[in-house]
């Protein structure tokens, strides 16, 4: 009896076709590489601002009210920063922010925990209405924390609110 060559061992060797798979895999790879875009992460600054109703007595008065006033030029650029009425020295927004942050750090004086300014203090931001928004974020950044040399964030005053009205010129 004639036996077929392939049936000698009872099993046919199955060979996988690699070429189409590799084609598709490379297509996928190219697609993902092309659509890949490094996006900077986004983060939030949390602000709790309940509406102050007329009858509600404001019992939570921070020990030291801290008002940061931001003045702007006509084009919306930051011209000066005042903390409780005292102007921060400097010529540029970065100078103002550095001075403001230093002042806040001095005020906190390394104290933390219940009752300290860091916990209880609240910054009220009184920004000129036509000031560009990124200066506000810059200010919030300066007062809420500082990135230390080791990359860790040193928390400063985290409670922020905006001045009611906020239509200061």
């Amino acid at each position: 009896m004639k036996i077929r060559k392939n049936e000698v061992h009872g099993r046919e060797k199955i060979e996988l076709q690699m070429t189409p798979m590799i084609d598709i895999v490379f297509q996928l790879l190219v697609f993902f590489i092309m659509t890949f875009k490094i996006v900077a992460m986004e983060g939030d600054f949390n602000i709790k601002m309940p509406q102050a109703s007329a009858g509600q007595a404001t019992t939570e008065v921070p020990p030291i009210p801290l008002v940061v006033k931001l003045n702007a030029s006509d084009s919306g650029k930051l011209t000066s920063v005042l903390l409780n009425g005292r102007a921060m020295p400097g010529n540029s927004d970065l100078d103002f922010m550095r001075a403001l942050q230093k002042k806040i750090i001095d005020l906190i004086d390394g104290k933390s925990g219940p009752g300290s300014l860091q916990e209880e203090g609240e910054i009220e931001i009184d920004a000129a209405s036509h000031l560009k928004y990124h200066y506000v974020i810059q200010t919030i950044t300066a007062v809420t924390g500082k990135v230390g040399e080791d990359g860790k964030i040193i928390k400063l005053i985290e409670k922020i609110k905006f001045s009611p009205g906020g239509e200061a010129g």
């Binding site: 309940p50 209405s129 506000v136 906020g166």
Partner: peptide
Amino acid sequence: GDMDVQAGKVQELIKLCQ
């Protein structure tokens, strides 16, 4: 908020949300 938007407008928006 866009970085160039006026701070007053953002405040107005917050007020509106309040």
